[in-house]
């Protein structure tokens, strides 16, 4: 019998929204994202994508509607930036994976939009963590899906690149109709940038806009209050 790590999770994402998923270590953020993406079967409940049950999607149809960026790296870093991004076009290519002129256009546009043009022939092992994260996001964009799920996209990055990646995500939802859900420990940055936040807890998750959540004072006892406390004025955590 598999026992659930977190229960009573209920939230919805509209198109063009940036939603952060926060919670303590081990509360099941990655598990939730894997379940939402269909990698892992759900234990109970319903997952709807465009008002259709996730389980009723065919694999190729799902690949055109939902893309992911995982915390784990890729097994072979001997792929060029271009190759990785072009692999995002797989749901649209023929049986042998040939890129059509449309695929090539899409990849070119994404290279421009993400500022990866100059890096396109670099191998992934030559990139910094921040650059590699951008490549993986660009790959998800190439999949041209309405929903992108990212598992801790800012881990291992310095504060500048954390902000850079989050700004990039914000830009994506602003300029396209895509929706993005990402898990993060950067609650401070998430409060400033996100449209909605899901606070994942074992018993019941809380969902709302940053303002609502600050008003409800949910952050004050999100972590053990013996060490840190939340300051609603500055929307940040302080060490006691």
């Amino acid at each position: 019998m598999i026992s659930p790590v977190a229960e009573n999770i209920n939230f919805n994402v509209q198109s063009g929204e940036l939603v952060a998923l926060v919670g303590t270590n081990g509360v099941g953020k990655s598990t939730l994202l894997r379940t939402l993406s269909g990698i892992q079967p759900k234990l109970s409940g319903e997952i709807l994508l465009h008002n259709t049950l996730l389980s009723s999607y065919k694999s190729n149809q799902l690949a055109k509607s939902l893309s992911i960026v995982l915390t784990e790296g890729i097994p072979t870093k001997n792929l060029s930036v271009l190759e990785v991004i072009a692999l995002g076009r797989q749901p649209y290519t023929n049986w042998i994976g040939s890129l059509s002129s449309k695929d090539i256009d899409v990849v070119k546009t994404i290279l421009n939009d993400t500022g990866l043009n100059e890096l396109q022939d670099k191998k992934c092992y030559q990139l910094s963590d921040g650059q590699f994260q951008r490549v993986m996001i660009a790959r998800a964009l190439a999949q041209d899906t309405s929903l992108i799920l990212l598992d801790e996209p800012t881990t291992h990055l310095d504060i500048y690149h954390k902000a850079y990646v989050l700004k990039m995500l914000k830009n994506i939802v602003k300029t396209t109709t895509r929706s993005i859900v990402f898990s993060t420990h950067e609650i401070g940055l998430a409060l400033q940038l996100c449209d909605k936040i899901v606070i994942l807890q074992k018993e019941k998750s809380i969902f709302g806009t940053p303002e609502e959540l600050i008003k409800q004072e949910v952050f004050s006892d999100l972590f053990g209050s013996d060490l840190i406390s939340f300051d609603p004025q500055t929307a940040s955590f302080k060490i006691n």
Binding site: S37, G38, I39, S59, I74, T76, V84, L87, P91
Partner: peptide
């Protein structure tokens, strides 16, 4: 095609359909 997708790992391959 699946072999190329597998270069990104099984999870990414799955998400590519």
């Amino acid at each position: 095609k699946p072999l190329n997708a597998l270069l990104l790992g099984e999870h990414y391959a799955f998400s590519l359909g």
